[in-house]
Design a binder for these strands. Structure first.
Length: 461
RNA sequence: GCCGGGGUCGCCUAGCCUGGUAUGGCGCCGGCCUGCUAAGCCGGUGGGGGUGUCCCCGCGCGGGUUCAAAUCCCGCCCCCGGCGCCA
């Protein structure tokens, strides 16, 4: 039962070096890790030998009947302890350094991942839907489709679609980020009426479709401890994304992935119980500390939103197949919403440390003239399960291995709303609601059914 | 938040007062036996390191006392019960 990274470290470190190089990281830490691991093993052995010696003497103490002999043995044990403690102190230092280094290593990049240091190297895999392209964005659209070798049929429009931020606040009058910034700061929002119904309907839609496919519905804790978070994410993500609760060892989750990964932390799962497919529904809190001034307007990039998240615990031999399944599920949801999208295989330099491979589903945004991320599906293989101690037990011989963990967005509410506002608006600012959402709107007396109308035609405020 | 009880190798459990190599059962894995199944019998069943025979560590977590800690002391986490507070 070994962690894949530790196994490579001992048997074939060059694999790890190549992987780090693909991520654009310094591969020399692998040499350092190999050296530290070797030193750790040597020290551990020495300490173990001294401990053994001490155990032997100490056991003799209880058996010694002669008081003088007893005193002599106790004295000898004392001397051993003194020597042992020196070595142990050294071992502890090395161990801690080794541990930190091992935990800083990112997952091993899968061979199918395109190599590159920016999203320009993301490899489009397939396109779906018929994007509406404003004439002014035509060139950039062709750049993102035909130039990448895909013939995508599209409609050219001569009027410029209104960006989601203006749709929200000005055209529909159903969002208020100005007052939100007074109350909470930038990147917060108030949503009203029809957009709230839409938010809820989107969540219900994703929940309905995916539970029907066998996912188990979960409301997880919205705050988790440090150890759990460190098991799920890397330090960079921690710094940029995570809110801490003052005075407590608790952090607000940035996605349901965090508490769902922790669900079986430190536990063993019998192989015939796998795969375990969970569907988390939760608010998500993100500091967006590394985002700079990107997407400052509107609700594309915000500090809080609702999300339905697919999460799977899997046998190692099934995880790659399951990754395809997760992204296919997300595609089905976005096809239902009639949002034109593409799926990209994310470049090595853009993968987070936990992921061995990641697909993004990007929806065409008519007012921005580009495809933008709505869904992210990752296979973290045994990276998270090693850190969290989630293992599977093979029936045959009761052998233990690390499970593989996968996660994928189903629907993130605010982002999906931006896609709907931009794609389904007409020239008069009326927003058509996708038909698949209807069952989840009909249950409410005041919810819209087919359209969301501009504030001008509603004639209020 | 306070008082009391508790947390032991997947599950249950003995040991804790009175410090001296962690007890038994269930489940699971392997084997034997066997028309089949069941039962029965034997062995195994936490982690790390080394390696055919071994060693170390492990009793919620972290410290302390001691030659020696599941056992004694301190802090923390969690569970159960009672009280308080509150939706």
């Amino acid at each position: 039962m070994t962690w894949s990274i530790l196994r490579y470290l001992r048997e074939n470190p060059s694999v790890l070096k190549e992987s780090l190089a693909k991520r654009g990281m310094d591969a020399s830490i692998i040499d350092k890790a190999v050296e530290l691991d070797g030193l750790w093993r040597k020290l551990k052995r020495e300490v173990d030998e001294l401990r053994h010696k001490h155990n032997v003497v100490t056991r003799l103490v209880s058996k010694a009947s002669d008081p003088g002999e007893k005193r002599r043995l106790i004295e000898e044990a004392r001397l051993i302890v003194r020597r042992r403690e020196e070595l142990e102190a050294r071992l502890r230092r090395v161990e801690e350094e080794r541990r930190r280094l091992l935990l800083s290593l990112p997952n091993i990049v899968h061979p199918s991942v395109p190599v590159g240091d920016s999203d320009e190297y993301n490899e489009p895999l397939r396109y779906w839907g018929r994007p509406r392209v404003y004439r002014g964005f035509l060139e950039s659209f062709l750049e993102q489709t035909v130039k990448r070798g895909f013939q995508v049929s599209y409609d050219v429009v001569d009027w410029k679609p209104i960006g989601h931020a203006d749709m929200l606040e000005k055209v529909l009058g159903l969002g208020d980020t100005l007052r939100a910034s007074k109350v909470a700061g930038s990147r917060f929002y108030y949503l009203f009426d029809d957009l709230v119904w839409l938010d809820m309907a989107l969540i219900m839609y994703a929940v309905d479709v995916l539970t029907a496919k066998g996912f188990r519905l979960v409301i997880p804790p919205y705050m988790v401890r440090y150890d759990i978070l460190m098991g799920v994410i890397d330090m960079d993500t921690f710094r940029d994304a995570i809110y801490k609760v003052e005075g407590e060892n608790l952090y607000l989750i940035a996605t349901a992935e965090h508490p769902l990964a922790g669900l079986y932390a430190g536990e063993e799962i019998m192989e015939d119980e796998l795969p375990i497919k969970l569907l988390g529904i939760s608010p998500c809190f993100r500091r967006e500390a590394g985002a700079g001034n990107r997407d400052l307007k509107g609700i594309f990039r915000v500090h809080q939103f609702h999300k339905v998240e697919q999460f799977v615990y899997s046998k190692p031999e099934e995880s790659w197949e399951l990754l395809e399944e997760l992204i296919a599920n997300a595609e089905q949801l976005f096809q239902g919403l009639e949002l034109p999208y593409r799926v990209v295989n994310v470049a090595s330099g853009e993968l987070g440390a936990p992921a061995a491979k990641k697909y993004d589903l990007e929806v065409w945004m008519p007012a921005q003239g580009r495809y933008r991320e709505m869904v992210s599906a990752s296979n973290t293989t045994d990276w998270q399960s090693y850190r969290l101690g989630v293992r599977l037990v093979r029936r045959k011989g009761m052998q233990r291995e690390y499970v593989h963990m996968l996660n994928s967005t189903a629907i993130a509410s605010t982002r999906t709303i931006t896609a709907i506002l931009e794609n389904h608006q007409d020239e008069d600012g009326v927003v058509k609601i996708p038909k698949v959402l209807r069952p989840y709107l009909e249950v409410f007396k005041k919810a819209p059914r087919d359209y969301i109308y501009p504030v001008s035609s509603r004639g209020k405020r």
